[in-house]
């Protein structure tokens, strides 16, 4: 059963390109970030998108999250078009994005407050999810008192607490050291089994994608489209075995994905060298900030 369906998604960005010495002065151009993405994700599936940096993976995730609108195309969740964010989707970013003025439990409660759940029940639910991510006893810690891995656990608990059907994860383990990353990957698989969520996972690590996913979609260099989708022939039980990463299936999948990804990475680097581009962030009014200081 299809849970998320993206049809011909195109997304454009206005950019300020700082011209080189020949071409002084700023020119405003439009940059095609996504060039028609088609993708279906099944209910309860773990699907990862891998792609070279700057290919528009995160842009796509934002679109599914309803944080931005596509210029063309539509995204459907359970057959209904997405227009705006909602509590049916929980998002986890690489940057943790915890509210630093709230304790761990306060962070997990945040989404529940939007759901208008009473305080007592909120605390109960938040405690349950903190214990699901292995953070019982850390309820009253502030984010600055937590390690990177623990922060990301809180962020995962926060995204799960209001019980969304879908978990959107944008390189969630990208900022962690490799041991912590492996531990959290295993934890995520366990949580996925326990909660039966549909997970859309963005990563640039092929290894991570193979380890976690039912299917892996490869995105091309900008403008991003889905180049290929690869099935990962690993059962959920096998993934918890210690030597899964050296198993034949794992190695073969990784090899296949790298073959598909390689030329996109090269292409992306060429694009990167040719132009240095700044995508203006809609949330951050940089120009206005400068005027005031």
């Amino acid at each position: 059963m299809t849970k998320i369906k993206a049809e011909n998604i195109k997304k454009m960005f206005k950019i300020r390109s700082n011209g080189n010495s020949k071409n002084n002065g700023n020119t405003s151009k439009e940059l095609l970030a996504l060039g028609g993405v088609n993708l279906s994700i099944n209910k309860g599936e773990f699907l990862s998108i891998v792609g070279p940096s700057g290919c528009g993976k995160s842009t796509f995730l934002d679109l599914v999250g309803g944080l931005t609108k596509p210029n063309e195309g539509n995204i459907y969740i359970d057959g209904k078009p997405v227009n705006g964010p909602g509590l049916d989707r929980g998002i986890v970013f690489q940057q943790y994005a915890l509210f630093p003025w709230r304790t761990a439990i306060g962070n997990v409660e945040f989404g529940l407050e939007s759901k208008k759940i009473a305080k007592n029940e909120r605390i109960e639910i938040a405690q349950k999810y903190l214990s699901l991510v292995g953070l019982s006893g850390f309820e009253e810690r502030y984010p600055y008192e937590l390690s990177g891995g623990m922060k990301q656990r809180v962020a995962i608990a926060r995204a799960l607490a209001f019980d969304p059907d879908i978990l959107l994860m944008d390189e969630p383990f990208g900022a962690l050291d490799s041991q912590t990353r492996e531990i959290l990957q295993r934890e995520l698989l366990r949580i996925w089994e326990e909660t039966q969520k549909t997970i859309l996972f963005i990563t640039h690590s092929i290894d991570e994608a193979v380890f976690l996913s039912d299917r892996v979609a490869i995105m091309t260099a900008r403008p991003g489209v889905i180049k290929n989708i690869v099935d990962i022939p690993l059962s959920r039980a096998v993934r918890f075995e210690d030597d899964v990463r050296t198993s034949n299936e794992f190695v073969r999948s990784r090899h296949e994905l790298w073959g598909l990804l390689k030329e996109e990475v090269v292409k992306a680097q060429q694009i990167g060298v040719k132009t240095t581009l700044k995508i203006s962030s809609s949330e951050k009014a940089v120009a206005q900030g400068e005027a005031w200081t």
């Binding site: 934002d62 999250g65 309803g66 944080l67 705006g84 964010p85 909602g86 509590l87 989707r89 929980g90 998002i91 970013f93 940057q95 994005a97 915890l98 509210f99 945040f110 989404g111 407050e113 939007s114 209001f162 962030s281 949330e283 951050k284 009014a285 206005q288 900030g289 005031w292 200081t293």
Partner: peptide, 27 residues
Amino acid sequence: LSTISAVQNVDPFIVKTARSMGVSEWD
């Protein structure tokens, strides 16, 4: 001035996260 610049420097990912959880503009 300090309030304005503080507001304009709020971590965009925190804003994004809050928005993803459907908070009203007032909240």
